[in-house]
Amino acid sequence: MDTYKLELSLRDLKKKVRNLRKQELIPCVIYGKGIDSLAMQVEYQPFRKVYRKAGGNNIIDLKVGDKEYKALVHHVDFDPVTDKIAHIDFINVRMDREITAQVPLEFFGISLAVKDLGGTIVHSRDRLTVRCLPAKLPGKIEVDITPIVDFRTVVTVKDIKLPEGVVVLEKQEQAIASAVAPRAEEEEIKPAVGVDVNAEGVPIEKVEEGAPAVAGAEEGKKEEVKKKE
């Protein structure tokens, strides 16, 4: 497991939060079993750098003065206007107690349903909920899509190889990935409603009642009348 570290400092609750943000500080809180909730602050850029790598499912060593805490990033609030980090919730964990966390899935392999049949892989889930000791918490769970050789095969939770000591809480039959067939590039051209077609599907031009069946028929009728006269 990778090691991530951050230094935090106690927050003066008398100071306005907006003033902290002007100083490139993020207000945050640490809570969890065995400790009282602590109002803290952390420098913006160091946290941003660590969070990019650790995400919410890697243990971060938090140093607050002479004390240290093992924690996970439980929640991050973003400013709706600037999209900058506005607040962080850290949850303290005990290394000898199991925790529950969501872990992202990473798909790998070559599916014959895609390579040979032109299909597209569809992901039913992009993360799974697991239970394990903090030291066993994986940063990601790999899912092999190689078994998907046709449009009937489905990769489920029971097909995933998990690290030792990690238990997935979703049902074993939960679908994870499958393949869908490609759409026809060209749809069959159908004649408009009410149009007659021949055996080859070519529209037959209708002749109005009383109109000549072929070109020149009207002229032929005129010549026949003249002869009778």
Rank of each mutant, 00 (worst) to 15 (best):
R97H: 14
D196V: 14
I204E: 07
H74R: 15
E185N: 14
G165E: 02
P138Y: 01
G194N: 10
V168K: 07
I85Y: 04
P104E: 00
E173K: 14
R94K: 14
P134K: 02
V202G: 09
A181S: 15
L117Y: 00
E205S: 13
D196H: 15
E188W: 05
D116T: 11
F108V: 09
I110W: 05
P182W: 08
I176H: 06
E186N: 12
R183E: 15
K161N: 12
D150C: 01
K115W: 03
G118P: 00
I160K: 07
E170G: 11
D77L: 03
I121E: 08
L169D: 14
E142N: 08
D83A: 10
H75I: 08
A179D: 04
I141A: 04
V197C: 05
A181N: 12
I176C: 10
I141P: 02
A86E: 08
S178T: 15
R94V: 02
I99W: 00
A113E: 01
E205V: 13
V180E: 15
H123F: 11
T100I: 10
D61C: 09
V157C: 08
L137G: 02
E170N: 15
F90W: 04
V143N: 04
E142Q: 09
T82K: 10
T153A: 10
L137D: 04
D126P: 03
A199W: 08
K206V: 15
I176M: 12
I91R: 06
V197F: 01
A71M: 00
G118L: 08
L162V: 07
D159S: 04
K67V: 06
K190Y: 07
A101Q: 05
I189H: 13
G201I: 05
E106M: 09
V166T: 02
L128M: 05
S124M: 14
A184H: 14
A175R: 14
K136G: 02
V202D: 09
R152T: 11
G65M: 04
D150L: 04
L162E: 10
D66L: 14
K190C: 06
K67E: 03
A175Q: 08
G139D: 03
K206A: 12
V202K: 11
L128F: 01
K115T: 01
L133Q: 09
V207K: 13
V193Y: 14
I148L: 12
T100L: 08
K158N: 14
L133G: 06
K84Q: 13
I88Y: 00
E200T: 13
V193T: 13
A179N: 07
V93E: 01
L133K: 10
V149F: 10
T120R: 09
Q172D: 15
D196G: 10
K171A: 15
V157T: 06
E170Q: 14
K70T: 02
K63T: 01
L62D: 03
C132P: 04
A177C: 09
V64K: 05
H123E: 03
E200P: 08
E205G: 13
T129F: 05
A135R: 15
P203L: 02
G139M: 06
I99P: 02
V197K: 09
G119E: 05
T153S: 12
K84F: 06
